[in-house]
Design a protein around this nucleic acid. Sequence first.
RNA 1: GCCGAUGUAGCUCAACGGUAGAGCAGCGGAUUUGUAAUCCGUUGGUUGGAGGUUCAAGUCCUCUCAUCGGCUCCA
Length: 643
Amino acid sequence: MPEIRVTLPDGTSKVFPSGATPQQVGESISPRLAAASLAAKSDGGLVDVYRPLDHDCTLELITERSPDALGIYRHTCAHLMANAVKELFPEAKIAIGPVIEDGFYYDFDRDAPFTPEDLERIEARMREIIARDTPIRRQELPWQEAKALFDRQQEPYKSELAYERGQNEPVSIYRQGAFDDFCRGPHLPSTGRIKPDTFKLLSVAGAYWKGDEHNKMLQRIYATAFLSRKELEEHLTRLEQAKARDHRKLGRDLGLFMLHPWAPASPFFTAKGAIVYNELVDLMREFYREYGYQEVITPQVFDVELWKRSGHYEHYRENMFLAEIDEREFGLKPMNCPGHCLLYGSESHSYRELPLRIADFGRLHRYERSGVTQGLTRVRSFAQDDAHIFCRPEQIESEIRSLFELVRRTYEIFGFVDPHVYFSTRPENSVGSDEIWQRAEAALDGILKAQEAVFTVNPGDGAFYGPKIDFVVKDAIGREWQLATIQLDFNLPERFELSYTGPENAPERPVMIHRAIMGSIERFMGVLIEHFAGAFPLWLAPEQVRLLPIADRHVAYSEVVASRLRGAGLRVTVDARPEKTGYKVREAQLLKIPYMLVIGDRELESASVSLRTRSTGDRGSVTVDTFVEMALRRVESRSLELE
RNA sequence: GCCGAUGUAGCUCAACGGUAGAGCAGCGGAUUUGUAAUCCGUUGGUUGGAGGUUCAAGUCCUCUCAUCGGCUCCA
């Protein structure tokens, strides 16, 4: 009998008869290891524990401790769920069921929708199938046979997949009892290996077959699973906590913004919310002074001639608010760039003026399809910390380098330390010469590498007019939000025939850099609310200090202190209601007001205040001067700390 | 836009097809209070909107609007 040599992770190797399984290899090391193995990794590829090994190879048994374990476990859970659905609803057709970041899902085609009660039944049936401890077995077969099998089972989606995948690779199916699934594997060796209290079905959602909106909409069941009950519970707790810092809930509870059905997806900022909003804008204005930007104000409504010239009428019209007035068609601006091109083009420019950095906080309106809008993070009416830099090609690199610094410095203030960077390169359908694209991409690439930034390349995902860099941060619920964007544009200057006079006294074409650091102020604020769970750093807090006089006789002194603080530029209120201190403290805490100053007889006598911070509670007595000095220092440095 | 869910007082939630309610908030009064809820009283609603079924609709049906979870989209 032929023999094979199996090399283990510790470097040792053993000889086994050909056809030995990872399971058997494991048993030769330790029966406990074999029993704990979910799957195995051989020559870098994942295999089932019962898959015969037929040549010399490396082998690593995958236990729960392995990083590959969770994915395999979840994938087997997905099959288990589909198995249960088919038993309960034989008419449902199975589509695909992949593992995702926090769990897995499975798509089904069925006329009747799945109800929450159905989910409970499915979960219960999954546990029954676990109790049966049905073996799960892999079978490799020619794609024609796989397709024929699924045709017999009237599973059109699986049949289609078998046909498509079979053209390029060998195919396999996994069978557990009467349930067959088209799958690459590997899987746990039996349904009994899933622990019955480690998964949970979460929700039902519509999803198009193959993600194409022209295809049929299927029903997707989202679920999650972990290797232990404890981890599952921790995950569910995290979801609960995320809900508590949802900016839509906090926005209402803290009185920051509201929405009205008559202005769908267009937030109203209250006086408090507007304070936060304007502090964000002021921060950018401060940077603009330092970085040499000039701020402009441009119109909201333009004749569509502008949008035809810019290309928006052709490429962006479905996202624009259009209106016909006086037999003329107008469009509300969705972006500032075309307006800035008109501004640039309205006078002649010398190369000596460049780079020209034109900033604009103008309101933008984009018609977002109903169903895609969300709180502050996806809206129809918003402003960006938008700017367009008109420069010479050789200035691109230093401008972008400086933008990187600006992004880093801005995000640092909020404690966003690791935005993910995406670099999108030239798409198929693009404008501009090869030479200038190469230069643009090389510049971006060089800068990214020089920054030692970790970045992901999205080949061919750039704008048609130039490559772009996006910065993405994660919010409290793990959703990723694109904030900053930097785009190189050779197209609009061409379309608007922009020029400047070069050193040779000849007209030259400027390059445009579109850039936003916060992105949309609305979205940025939404992300910030979640990031801080509503507890804004002092400089952003709408109400920075609340004075809490203990009794009526302390109110007058409290007003004196309040005037002193207001005079120093702090945002202060006095809670003079005849309530107990505990009541006032509770309310101030719930509003996440950074500082509470309790004022009673002792403070009155010593011209002091008793300081309480929202984060650490009672800090004892300080003089008013000491408090003002400390608070101002925190505001001016935009500190994230309160003391 | 598509699939599904939800919509009752400012907020959180009740109400079998049979008289729309509670707590908190608000308002009035009492209380003068030392670091997360003092007590009493009280206002508040075209049950998102429009139709329909029924003796009777918050409840059932149709349409519509908004929001939520996804899909698609997201220069």
